[in-house]
Design a binder for these strands. Structure first.
Lengths: 344, 344
DNA sequence: TGTTAGCACTCATTCACTTAGAGTGCTAAT
DNA sequence: ATTAGCACTCTAAGTGAATGAGTGCTAACA
């Protein structure tokens, strides 16, 4: 519904504003060599674009700035995949070269590289732990009354918790308990673990171990692992360099948001696959009104997956960031899915 | 060497400035009911105090502000222990009431309560892991080539790492290895672990297990745990509410510092016992020039200890903060040292 | 009919200037 | 030894004019 010329002008305005963070005026646009119209013509088109809701003015006599609708149109219709420089691709892939791939380390480094390359803030969500499958239970007694319960998953993730042992719970009981757990529950995903414990295993435990009742509660606690993967940040302070963050209140709002796990998680949307862009208020979070979030998912093995988010100002370089995120996402998927046969 | 009157005036200035964050003038001082001198007299004294280096002016006709030397004198000579309100003591001790004391949880909560009560930023250092003693080794194979190596310590801490298994390393070998490790190294502190591994255990391993050589490197890695305890923050964004942090550059400097583990650690000084105050540049860190740090140590069991730091503006309420820190420090020590017999 | 030149108008920004107020240092009186 | 008095300094807040970037509209033009 937009004319070609309007598209062209919208694109120039977004591109320009992304670079300069300054409202874009008609004269400025007409100076671009590939723009053949006079400022007056452009002004007319801009007035129309504003009426249609794609542009905004900061005050009556300022240049134009893209509105959220403008950005949305831009990312939906005008975004072209660009090829990244050799250097950048090299940098991203350097993480994957290392032979011994400790998952946590790779993820941590990914977050840092992404934030370095974009100068935005990166959040990486490790694969959802609840889909890991139990590989081994272990209970290590510390004293008469306490022990550490450990669950090792097929991904090499180790979940552990200190538990209280019931009175008169002797080493033999521990051994029996561990055996029963390992016989019955290896291969079960952490998600199902709690119900499986409750439904079948506790009954068996009661039959074989005295004072089983009392240890049940403890085991339930261990099985209750948090649903989402661990959160890793990169470039938390990068945003302070963006001109839109000269306002201390915004800084505070953002920082406080990043401290709260649940709010960070809510930036990711469970159904999402592939790359998604959420602009400003589309994030449904007051602190994010001036920010955009680009999310992507990467896969770990067959069933599990993790997420990446890059948080930048609304006028972020969508094109470049999307490309970068795509390289990273496929890199991570490749590395974790190849290795996942090997248990990583 | 300071006269009584000078002491009195210095104290009023510090106390006033701590509250108001505004330079303190002579008139303001003379209005205090317990001050019997006229503004002019006070001006003379202030001029002397300035000459001696205890006070500063922000500009020629401003009131006075304590200099670093002034603060130092204040904390060294004028600090009186104050009694805290019932409510506050109650709040602090509420953390310790819970019967099942998961160390990590207690520490995390302590950091939050301290930062809530002070509205400064709190850093809690968990007990130095290197003094934990090995309770149990475990190796859980994931695939043909990989396994998870686990060390459980007497404190209930679990250290784990994914390792690569040498070709042809069969389950029996794992069992043998684990047995040897458990026979020889239980009770050894993590600090000594590496050298003990190297000096004795590897030799024994070589005798009993084929292809032991190749697994040695992996085990070394596991034994290399980071020296310092884990770091927990409370109220990271509290500092943004302090008027001295209206300057974005300071905010950035501080935030960046807190992101770097080594720099955070360097705020603590290994020799310190009890409570220490470091004012502004005494911290030897550019980002901390306008901040003061109060540190305290708490003990865990007989040998281990952790640290607490509270970071506030130089004009922080030293008196109150020190008292609070003291309550917290003794609370933590009590809770962790009683329970440490039980392995917590 | 689409495009453009011209022009009046708006608004943010900057700078110089003023004023009010808080505070000092010094001197002379108590 | 203390204090009242006063000239002086400096900041903060406000005012007003000049500047410049940018717009909207109208009328002329191709």
């Amino acid at each position: 519904m937009l004319t070609n010329r309007q598209l062209q002008i919208l694109q120039v305005i977004v591109d320009d504003f992304v670079n300069s963070a300054q409202p874009v005026g008609s004269r400025q646009i007409s100076k671009k060599e590939w723009i053949t119209y006079s400022p007056a013509t452009i002004r007319n088109e801009m007035a129309d674009l504003e009426e249609l809701g794609f542009l905004e003015k900061t005050h009556t006599s300022s240049g134009r700035v893209p509105s959220e609708k403008g950005y949305r149109y831009y990312v939906d219709h005008l975004l072209q995949p660009i090829s990244m420089s050799e250097r950048e691709i090299g940098l991203v892939q350097s993480i994957f070269k290392n032979q011994i791939v400790e998952m946590e380390q790779v993820i941590r480094e990914s977050a840092n590289i992404l934030s370095d390359l974009t100068s935005y803030t990166t959040i990486l969500l490790g694969p959802n732990v609840s889909k890991h499958r139990v590989k081994r239970f272990q209970i290590v007694p510390l004293t008469e009354q306490t022990a550490v319960a450990i669950i090792v998953t097929d991904n090499g993730h180790v979940e552990n918790r200190t538990i209280t042992l019931p009175q008169g719970f002797i080493p033999v009981d521990i051994e029996k308990t561990v055996n029963i757990l390992n016989e019955r529950l290896v291969g079960v995903s952490l998600l199902e673990l709690q119900s499986r414990l409750e439904l079948e295993t506790f009954e068996v435990l009661r039959q074989h171990v005295k004072t089983a009742d009392s240890i049940i509660q403890s085991l339930k606690n261990v099985a209750f692992v948090q649903n989402e993967g661990k959160i890793y940040f990169g470039g938390k302070t990068n945003m302070l360099n963006q001109p839109e963050f000269h306002d201390l209140n915004k800084v505070r709002a953002l920082m406080e948001m990043m401290e709260k796990e649940s709010q960070v998680i809510s930036l990711f949307h469970p159904g999402d696959r592939g790359i998604h862009i959420r602009i400003g208020s589309e994030n449904n979070h007051l602190a994010m009104d001036d920010l955009s979030v680009i999310t992507a998912t990467y896969s770990v093995g067959k069933e599990q997956e993790g997420s990446i988010a890059i948080i930048g100002p609304k006028r972020m370089d969508y094109q470049r960031t999307v490309s970068l995120l795509d390289v990273m996402r496929s890199g991570l998927s490749r590395v974790f899915s190849n290795k996942s046969n090997n248990g990583l």
